[in-house]
Simulated assay, not measured.
Amino acid sequence: MTLPLRPDLAGLTPYGAPQLSVKARLNVNENPYAPPSVVVDAITTAVRKACVELNRYPDRDAVGLRTDLARYLAVESHADFLRADNVWAANGSNEVMLHLHQAFGGPGRKVLSFAPTYSMYPEYARDTLTEYVTLPRRDDFTLDVDAAAAAIAEIQPVMVLVASPNNPTGTALPLSEAAALCRAAAEVPGGCLVVVDEAYAEFRHRGVPSALSLMPEHWNLVVSRTMSKAFALAGGRLGYLAATPEVIDALQIVRLPYHLSEITQATARSALAHHRDLQAQVDEIRAERDDTVAWLRAQGFTVADTDANFALFGPFEDRKKVFEGLLERGVLIRVTGPEGWLRVSIGTAQEMALFRSALLEVVA
């Protein structure tokens, strides 16, 4: 059977990390703590109420949800200037990013990012026939902002994608550098957006600010977030972004009709109403992360500075062998990042103890 598949998709395999039943699943940066019972009860009640009218389409523009998200950002990042028309929501931050590429990318257009970074970025570009260009990060995974500004002027992309904290390195982007990117992008003829992907923002060290604080001064700044990580809602699939109302209007052009189900909206709004309950373990995850980084360094590994709920460590002569050795011992981590490096998500204290003992056995 011959399918009329796009030639650029021939031979490719779908994106996805292993989903295995093991003692310690530390490969996809999930929150290791299940939602507390008070949140489960609230979501259950809200979903049951929503089910009464499942014969009707959901709120197409999710105005109530977007209002709640703006209120959350006002508290979490002191962004009290945001309103519902500054916020967009979709099925995970993946769909949010895809909407951005659908609205602003396309044939003959370019997006710029900085490698190593999130492995889905080139796939968003591929799926929208947008050219994906990368600039290498420094050896410590920080950005060379002067080189980035020069690349923006030369390449003239329609978007600059920069994750902060960066995945898979955990590197945070200083506000001064985010502002410099916005200034450089503003000089591109026809306009250029700077998309700061803050999927792991709630895990950053105290005092590390969000790029949201720059939004009043930079019209071309977009900040993307997710409820999958700190909210322990990966199964709920809710991502969102903050931007100018003009950007939000553009995204509404490309979104599918009724793209957020009534169930998704009810779940997300209930979770937002209980965000303090859901994020009660964030401090514990931060502490476990810092302990893990310190322990890995004490064993002689190099570990990237991280403001996320994971750590990139190495180097290994044969990282696949180390990965497989850990898996044999019930610990699943991720083969990602530069050659020779591995990434471990931060789990519970018990899971991280298992990771440490297993790693010592594998490298002995």
Rank of each mutant, 00 (worst) to 15 (best):
S210F: 04
V362R: 12
V28T: 10
M352G: 01
V39M: 09
E123W: 02
A230R: 01
K321D: 12
A266K: 10
E288C: 11
D146E: 15
L175K: 03
E246M: 12
P107R: 14
A90C: 05
G337R: 07
D249M: 02
P18S: 09
R48V: 02
Q19D: 13
N166E: 13
A186Q: 14
S270H: 11
R109D: 00
A311W: 02
A17L: 15
A234L: 15
F203C: 12
I333E: 01
D139E: 14
Y15L: 15
A17Y: 00
K229F: 06
V38H: 08
C182L: 14
A243C: 13
Q102G: 01
L181S: 05
A186Y: 01
P107K: 13
G300R: 10
L12F: 01
S21N: 12
R255Y: 02
L272W: 09
V195N: 12
R60Q: 09
V344G: 00
F104S: 03
V331N: 01
M215P: 01
Y33V: 10
A178R: 06
E246I: 09
T267S: 05
A280D: 12
P209T: 00
D8M: 02
A179M: 08
I43L: 04
K320Y: 04
G190S: 12
L3H: 08
G235C: 07
R25C: 01
E131Y: 04
Q156D: 04
R71K: 11
A311G: 03
H275M: 05
L332F: 03
L327A: 10
A273L: 09
L251H: 07
L161A: 03
L9I: 05
T169L: 07
D59P: 03
F203R: 01
R66W: 08
V133G: 01
A304E: 05
A308Q: 02
A179Y: 04
P157R: 07
I152S: 00
A186W: 02
G314W: 05
P157K: 07
L251Y: 07
D139C: 04
R137Q: 06
D61C: 02
E30M: 11
L3M: 14
L129Y: 09
D318H: 10
S164W: 03
K110R: 15
Y118M: 10
S37I: 11
L73G: 09
L212Y: 07
L98V: 01
Q299R: 15
